[in-house]
Design a protein around this nucleic acid. Structure first.
Ligand code: FES
Ligand code: FES
Lengths: 150, 150
DNA sequence: TTAATATCCTACTAACTATATCGGAATAAT
DNA sequence: ATTATTCCGATATAGTTAGTAGGATATTAA
């Protein structure tokens, strides 16, 4: 699993939409809050829309909303959709593995598959509801710290 | 962690040298046994030599040998040396992390770091002695199967 | 001594990927 | 009509990947 800037931006955008679940957020708002280049984010959200992770509302006061509840979207889904398989090498892909010649008993493959499964289990068990809650706690903690320091 | 062809080839080459620990193996032999393009492998072995993972013997009857015992070389060392950090994104690099603006309390970073540590722990605890033993068992198993099927 | 067999070294290339930017069309609210 | 927004396709630029090419240098066997 290599997470590119694009993938990272996508995760941030989805998390942002999870935090503001109730009303549509414009590309501009997300872009500024998450510090993502506007035009790049535009592309990414369009892609996420094609993947049915978000919905859009066009025209004035438009923007994006999540297509599902945060608890129903996992980190793994977004990462796979934007950055491809989470396994470290193609012979270990869960979906469409392409092993080398010694395929059958390649020890490296066994190791790569182990690692792939570990990663998959992790990312498939983290939802954006989880992330949202953790984010809220982090913000509260920072606020507390700031309150004390003033 | 994304393992490239180059990284995969490097691992195969080192494992091959671990299997034939006693005498030097030429690029040609390794290339044929492991099905790696000759010229590419040449480059890779030179790089591994710079990294002090292998030693070379020049001239006729020359070749490469491991610079250390298989038990002292880990999967992680080779992967890092050839393909870079095993963490999935730069803000989670153990060596030189470069976090985003919300650095301090970025939940995504926490997750990425968790995953990075998982991967690191795995690859740092697999030595080429381990791999060699597993490989031998696999070969024995295949042989047994072939013996029965004849 | 010479031929054969090796490693060593630098440079080159073609295809692909990453990270955007640009310019405008379509849509909807005010 | 004006303004704010999404939508869409093209372009750009730099870096990475997966090699290949051509020769220099070292060692040894005949
Ligand atoms: S099957 Fe992946 S390295 Fe052999
Ligand atoms: S620090 Fe890596 S995404 Fe925020």
């Amino acid at each position: 699993m290599k997470i590119t800037f694009k993938g990272d931006y996508a995760l941030k955008a989805v998390l942002d939409l999870a935090m503001y679940y109730d009303k549509p957020q414009s590309v501009d708002e997300i872009s500024k809050r998450q510090d993502i280049p506007y035009k790049f984010l535009e592309q990414i959200l369009l892609q996420l829309k094609k993947g049915r992770f978000v919905k859009s509302l066009r025209g004035r006061n438009g923007g994006y909303v999540l297509a599902h509840k945060p608890a129903q979207i996992t980190l793994g889904q977004i990462v796979r959709f934007v950055d491809g398989p989470v396994e470290p090498i193609s012979c270990a892909f869960a979906a469409k593995p392409s092993p080398c010649n010694y395929s059958g008993n390649c020890v490296l493959r066994e190791v790569f598959c182990d690692i792939g499964k570990m990663i998959a289990e992790k990312v498939d068990n983290i939802t954006f509801e989880n992330l949202k809650e953790r984010q809220k706690k982090n913000i509260a903690k920072t606020k507390k710290y700031l309150d004390y320091s003033i």
